[in-house]
Design a protein around this nucleic acid. Structure first.
Lengths: 148, 148
DNA sequence: GGCAAACGCTCAGCAGGCTGAACAACTGCC
DNA sequence: GGCAGTTGTTCAGCCTGCTGAGCGTTTGCC
């Protein structure tokens, strides 16, 4: 009862778009969890590593790039540090700053994760115009972060 | 440095789609936070109320509809109960079950939230084909939840 | 009737978002 | 030089996801 496919369908149609996005994000990301787990990484950690590939960065800079708050990034980096994927050191020029650098292990893990990422997103074949879909998401994020 | 628009753009282009979805969800939902706050509600609570509009439901049923785990729903309901938006009572036919029912206050708040929801999603004007975009999200969620 | 299995919910604990507040280090201006 | 303000990070605390485990109730089969 109340589980007939058409009813579930009608139901989800009435959801606010924000919620659709959030559910979609969860299901897509969860497909990748196993891989990440095997590598001792998390989604947030992976994104941070991604931004560290080109060289060390201050935490705040990383936070901005990853579009999260400084506080959230602080914890993410702490975990990456504990797991040996990055090292932290204070900036000699400005001792308020923490410079975060990817370790060789971190780099290996990043490479492996990137390789698997492609395949893991196979699910997205369900979307008819993948590139267009991604562009829409990017436009949306830009719109939201711009005029504010 | 490294904050030139084209560079930020190039950067985000390389993000995995799951992450784009998650960031988009956050920015869209955050636009609605103030309203929700004013009503003493949260996003999770609102979705639950939405599914309670047609009558009382068991918690597990609610969890399924909202696409979250039983445990997550348990806490959401607990908060809605504390804030007076729902009441909980055990099902006489099956005392394992908790029947959740929306209160008059809950109904008022739901109506108010729904009204504001429309306007709050104005941001989504940035997307060129809104309906198509939503359909893609729904297809994606369906694909992920189906063959599993 | 009785016992094992399934079911519905909660507790514990972790990760990842957020805000507000604290604190040390730097900057700027007098 | 010194003090006020800004900046970079962290601490505390909240909400929402998740998994794993526990506990009471119901079901089903002998």
């Amino acid at each position: 009862m109340s589980h007939r496919p058409d009813q579930v369908r009608a139901d989800i149609d009435s959801w606010p778009t924000g919620r659709l996005l959030s559910v979609a994000a969860r299901v897509v990301e969860s497909r990748f969890d196993e891989v990440l787990n095997g590598l001792g990484l998390t989604h947030a950690g992976l994104i941070a590593l991604h931004h560290l590939a080109d060289g060390p960065r201050a935490q705040r800079e990383l936070a901005t790039l990853c579009k999260v708050t400084d506080q959230t990034m602080s914890r993410t980096i702490e975990r990456l540090d504990r797991s040996g994927h990055v090292t932290r050191g204070s900036d000699a020029r400005d001792r308020r700053r923490t410079l975060v650098e990817i370790t060789p292990t971190g780099r290996d893990v990043l490479t492996a994760a990137r390789r698997e990422e492609q395949e893991s997103e196979a699910l997205l074949g369900a979307v008819d115009d993948y590139d267009h879909f991604r562009r829409q998401l990017i436009v949306l994020i830009a719109a939201a972060t711009a005029h504010r």
